[in-house]
């Protein structure tokens, strides 16, 4: 798809010559406008999250005082969640399940995506449609067959039982196929002539080129499993096996929800994920700059 737009002129210009220069003032003005828009959008976007954070620091009474920030923030909710519940255990369970799932999805989905995008073989389109079509089945419909299967195989209340439905995802296959399609065939052909095996082409040539997409897939997969509720709820029986969302759901009961605890637990569940994203986002999203096509 990129072929008509293949570079027509010489390549390899220095980065500083990349962007055409206009008047300095105009550029500065435009950049200021961009920052302003980003900041305004950012405030709107982050507001509900900030409210959650603020609520986590309020006493049950203060929650309903309709003041955004509590006059005397308290760590009681955080303390209660950490010490009086099995939160650390839920956290560890979720971390293990999400990490294992992410690793599995990253490997299989990129391999399948590459195969479907870059290898020509009979049955390719049918296989893609079949895998894609599985995205269209709501999980709600699958949990009972999965449960029956788990009961027969003795997977109920095990870590494998929690994670097996997610070890590959049609979403990821679709995502990786779209990005793998952008890997230039010429590059693969050249490497093939150099004697790289089919798996080597995938692992050494294609995969590094789609690192941003792979990073995105890892983030989404991790988060999806971090927040997964329905299937873990169904397959978990004992308190020791509960994952974060299932544990947090215990704060809602017949006589109402303990919003101060829900918000504290949600905050505790989210902040580490967000911190990792903040630390790694440059490396993962911009990974291509280091490894990619510019060389």
């Amino acid at each position: 798809m990129a072929r008509t737009l293949a570079p027509r002129g010489p390549t390899g210009l220095a980065a500083s010559d990349r962007v055409p220069r206009r008047s300095q003032a105009g550029a500065r003005w435009r950049s200021a406008a961009a920052y302003l828009a980003l900041a305004a959008g950012g405030v709107v976007v982050v507001f509900p999250f900030a409210w959650m954070l603020a609520t986590a620091l309020k006493t049950p009474q203060q929650i309903f005082e309709l003041k955004f920030w509590p006059s005397a923030p308290t760590l009681d909710n955080i303390r209660q969640v950490l010490l009086a519940t099995q939160f650390p255990r839920w956290f560890a369970n979720s971390l293990g399940v999400a990490a294992a799932t992410t690793a599995s999805v990253a490997f299989f989905d990129s391999l399948v995506g590459y195969t479907l995008a870059k290898l020509r073989f009979p049955g390719r389109d049918v296989i893609f449609i079949v895998i894609l079509s599985t995205l269209m089945i709501p999980t709600e419909m699958l949990v009972i067959p999965w449960y029956i299967m788990s009961a027969r195989l003795g997977w109920i209340d095990t870590y494998w039982g929690i994670l097996f439905p997610g070890i590959m995802s049609a979403f990821g296959v679709f995502l990786m196929r779209q990005f793998m399609a952008g890997v230039p065939d010429e590059l693969l052909e050249a490497a093939r002539i150099d004697g790289l095996s089919e798996f080597g082409l995938f692992a050494r040539i294609a995969l590094p080129l789609v690192r941003p997409a792979l990073a995105a897939l890892c983030i989404f997969t991790f988060l999806g499993n971090w927040n997964a509720f329905l299937w873990p709820l169904i397959v978990i029986q004992t308190p020791e096996m509960r994952t974060l969302p299932v544990g947090i759901a215990l704060f809602s009961g017949e006589a109402g929800s303990s919003w101060h605890l829900i918000m504290a637990a949600s905050t505790l569940a989210v902040l580490p994920v967000l911190a990792v994203f903040a630390l790694l986002q440059r490396q993962i999203i911009e990974g291509v700059v280091l490894t990619g096509l510019r060389s």
């Binding site: 390899g12 210009l13 962007v19 055409p20 941003p212 510019r294």
Partner: peptide, 18 residues
């Protein structure tokens, strides 16, 4: 962002030269 990053800079460079 991932999609934009995946666009090789060479295309922009080439087009800019043009």
């Amino acid at each position: 962002l991932a999609g934009l990053e995946a666009i090789p800079q060479v295309y922009y460079e080439a087009a800019a030269v043009d």
